[in-house]
Every structure is written in C-alpha cells, then in structure tokens.
Design a protein around this nucleic acid. Sequence first.
RNA 1: GCCCCGGUAGCUCAGCUGGAUAGAGCGGCUGCCUUCUAAGCAGCGGGUCGCAGGUUCGAGUCCUGCCCGGGGCGCCA
Length: 591
Amino acid sequence: MKEKLREEIEPVVVSMLETAGDEGPLPEFVIEVPRQKEHGDFSCNVAMLLARRLGRKPREIAAELKDRLGNLGGLVSDLEIAGPGFLNIRLEEAGWQALLHDMIAAGSEYGRSTRPLGVPASVMSAGGAGKKPKVQVEFVSANPTGPLSTGHGRQGILGDCIARLLEATGWDVTREYYFNDGGRQMRVLGESVKARYLEGLGLASPPPPEALADPEKNWVDEHGGLPVVFPRDGYQGDYIREIADDLRAREGDALVDEPGEGRFRDEAQRIIFEDITRTLARIGIEFDVYYNERSLYDEGKLDETLEDLRKAGLIFDAEGAVWFKATDRGLDRDRVVIKSTGEPTYLMPDIAYHREKFRRGFDLVIDVQGADHIEQFPFVREATAVLGVDPERIELVLHQFVTITSGGERVKQSTRKATFVTIDELVDDVGVDVFRFFMIERKPDGHLDFDLDLAKEKNWRKNPAYYIQYAHARTHGIERKAREAGIEMPEAHSFDAGRLDLDEEIELVKKLAAFPEVVAHAAQSREPHHVAYYLREVAGLWNPYLQDATRHRVISEDAELTAARLGLALAVRSVLASGLGLLGLSAPETM
RNA sequence: GCCCCGGUAGCUCAGCUGGAUAGAGCGGCUGCCUUCUAAGCAGCGGGUCGCAGGUUCGAGUCCUGCCCGGGGCGCCA
C-alpha cells in the first residue's frame, strides 16, 4: 500500500522540482504509519524535506502537493496538512477492504516479492539488473569437535531465517557451512578419544577432577598406578567417552598403537558430524554446501592467494613468520598469515575462502557470526578487497550470545568443561517450533535471554510461539465449524468485504496489509525478528476478535456477513501461515 | 589502553534507519462478561529513553565525551 502511494506522490514531487529548476535527485522522503491514529493511515514528510531546496515554507509546499495530488486515483478519502508540514493521508475504507481480496487471491505468495532489495551497485552495473541475484549465506560453520550449543542454535536459526527471507524477496540463495577437519583442534579431539579408549581398556587412568578443573597447573602424569594420557586441553564431554566405548566394542584392543590423529580422530569427526547434521535437520536447517577448508589447500588456493597478496605489496616477512600488512589498509595492526612453523593461521584460508566465494559467482556474501569473531572480519574484507572483491558485496551479520534462564537464575555454561546446554537437550524440552521462535525473537545485536520456564509453558496465552500458532489453528477451527453448518469458505472475490466495518475488523485488515513491508524490511535489514513481532501483533488482534464472541461471531444468521468474516479468516490464515513459514515454524491446523 | 554490542515501564523487550503526545507482552489495580478449542473484554497506574553537551524546524534514533554491563584485542578457530 505504501508503494502505491509512493508511485502517486513521486511524479508530483519531480514536477515541482522541475518547475523550480532543481535537477537534483529525489529527496528520500518517508511514507509511514503514524503512531497517532488521528494523524491518518499514512503520513508523509516530503514537504518538510523540500522546504530548503525550494526555499519555501513546508506548509505552503504541502498545500500545493495536496492540490496537485487530488484523491490519488480514488484511494484517498482525506488529505490533511498538519503540524510543521506533514501530509496526512486517510484511505477510503473500501480501499482497505479491497485489499482483502488480493491477499486471499495471492495465497501463499502474499508478502513475497520478485524484486530483490539491496543488490550491490557493482552487480547492477555489471549487467545483473535483469537476473536473479545470487547470495550465499554462511552460518554455523562449527568444526566437528562436539555437539552444537545454544549459541550455534541461535546462529543457525538466524542464518536460516535470513536465507528464507531472501528467498522470499527474489534472491537465489545458497546456504553454506564452512568447516575444518584438520589442524590442532582435531588432533586434540583424536587424542581425547584415544585417552578415553585406553582408560576403558584399563591401560590408562582418567585425570583426577582437580586436574581437569585447572589445567594451568598441577597436571598429574600418573594416577592410581596408571599413566594419565588425557590431553590438558582435551575435550571432556561424555560424547567423547561414548565414541571411545563404541570403538572399543568394535575393535577391542586392536587400536592401542594407533595414533590419536589416525582412526580416533577420523571416527570422532565422522560421528560428531553425523550428529551435527542430524541436529540441524531436526530444527529445520538443511545446507546446500558443506565446504571443507582442506580443499583450499588441496587445490593450491592458499599459495595462489598468498602470491597475489605478495604481488600487491602487502606481504612481508618478520620474526620468522609471514605477515599481512593490514596497517597499509588502514587497520590497527598487521597479522600473521603463515606461522614460523610453516603452517598457515586461520586467517589465511579465510581470505582464500572468501575470494573463492566470488569466483563461484555469488553477487553477495553474508557471513553470520558470533560476536567473538568481530575482530576477524575487517582483515578478511581488506585482504579480499586487495584481490579485487568489492567490499560492499561482503556483509557481516553479527549476533550476541545466548544465556539460558530458569527460575530467575542463569543456567551456568562452560564450553571447556562441556557443561553447556546442547541444542538437542533444549529441543527435547521445548520442541522445535518454540526453540526456533525464542531464538529468532530478539534482534541479533542484543543478548538473547532464553527463558526456559516460559519456553516450556504449554498455555497458549503465555507462550508467544503457541499464541501465534493457535491464532492460525483457529482459522481452521472456524472453517471446520462453518462446514459443519453447511457453509462453504468464500472464494477470493466472492464476498463483500465492505461488510467488515467494525473498528477491530478494519484494524485487522490494515495490519494484514502491512505484511509485505514487514517482510521487505526484515529481509533488507537481515533482521528476522521483525517478522516475529509482527506475527505477535496479528495474533494479538485475531485471538481477541475470536474470543470476544459476545459482540461478533464469524458464523451467524447473516450469510453475507458470515462470508465476509470467513474471508477475513482466510486472509489472516494466509498471513500467519506465510509468516510462520518465513521463521521456519509449522502452521498447525489444530492444537 | 584500544575496538565492537547493549543500557527504553517492576520484568522481558520492540521502536519501520531523523518525525508529531513513548510502545507491546507479562506482572499490578478497577469494573464488566461467560467463549466459533484452553476465560475474555474495557479501563487505570507505571518513563529525567544510562549521564552531559552538540547538530536542526524536529533526537529514543545522528556526532562528541563520560558511566555501567557483555564480548574481543594470539604465530588459537
């Protein structure tokens, strides 16, 4: 609806500028729904923005606009100049009501768009204007060292929802998971498994608890007459023991001389990765590509990238290591890319990886990462910029951490001690839909306080996820009731929406009409939580509307009114189902 | 010391990228009502938008400086 108004207003503004001999660009004026209902359905600030350029008073400009706009093709019932120069727009009720037919006709397409927003300028100028732009969303990207934590859960849901929103707004989306199954981390993993394996065979002793509690000091070599082989920074979770026990059951003592980074590591990696993908699938996340860091080495991408950076004069040798001269690119320090041991640091493959992303044809790359990775990003962006990547085409979505609260107390979590809550445990407790909703409800920037008590709440009035789903289920409840009474649901255009003239009905229709803007805004800002809030608002209008059966019933003796209200129910259903789908929640027909 | 994020009602948080008199849910209080699936409806109270300056017609929103909380500042990933 906003777009329709904009299309009407823009030409008038252009012609006013032309008359004044101003050839500058169109001012970026806003059409918004005012906080105050008395200020109309929409409000426009263009007159105030034009005041300086035209050298006239805002209210005078608003008056001229009003004259020239007329009634905007019959949409508008009232145009009013208010305050310092706002143009307040009130639509004909019929204008709102007519939208209902469109919403129902559009069905699951309502709110979606084929015009992608925020396509980088360099893509457009390179002739990409007519094509569906390709975006890669990279998220989770956890190395296979253990089960996924709630932090990964937040990132997973966030990345997946951003992907869903981009798909719904005209992008060709690839979901990608980047991982490394080599390196020190995985070596320690293998050694941890081997230690537990030897312990199981009675050939080694587990370290005493006090040793594990503080690996910095007092680490024993022997305990209870047996050697302690568990590594100092080893992985302590129970899952390590399970993998070891499994190996022992299958192989007996045949692996005693096998090195930690052999079978032990390989088995651990395989089992943990299976576990991770199972968990992800369980919460509705499927990746298109699992990209292994190792392939960058195998294909010589690291050497090539290093060589190209060297040619650009941004590589130097010092203290036995190879450095990226980031200070030449305005960053605050230089970074090691090849250690004195000859091994690359993680920064090196990261740069090569991001360059490859663009070689693979993505127009835009979105990295979803936790707040602890913020430091890394500028180095990757600057390095790839040197290699010819437009920095505007790499985007970082950063999210803060998750804490879990129960009974007003924070549930303690420690990664090292493996006392963190896993996604699976949480989903066992609250179910997939509630899990997803709670993870996406907050804006990415802020800390997420996962209220376990509220999440476990089964009462639909209390639990926001159920509150929305129940609102959807109720549209089916109404339909079932109608069919029992021998009433068919109306077709998109087969009812008189004009019969919906109660305040709460008009308010609902207006809210439903805002859905496409909410989707567009959420997609463009990479902030899916806007959809969650919006759905809460729709449900917050629909649930009371149905509950208050004393004042209005959907199904009544008045066949025409019944049809209109059933039409409203269909429109509500369409919006709720689409919105829930964008968040990856189910839209149940009964609850 | 430097960098990033947050600070809005008793609690958990929105606030559409600078608009008009500050918003929701939960909780509290008052009155009414008894369901198209599980009690609802109407109303009330509740705020120096962390603090202080600045920018302009206009600032919760932008700039600067401070305070508080979280995270980061490795030849770890």
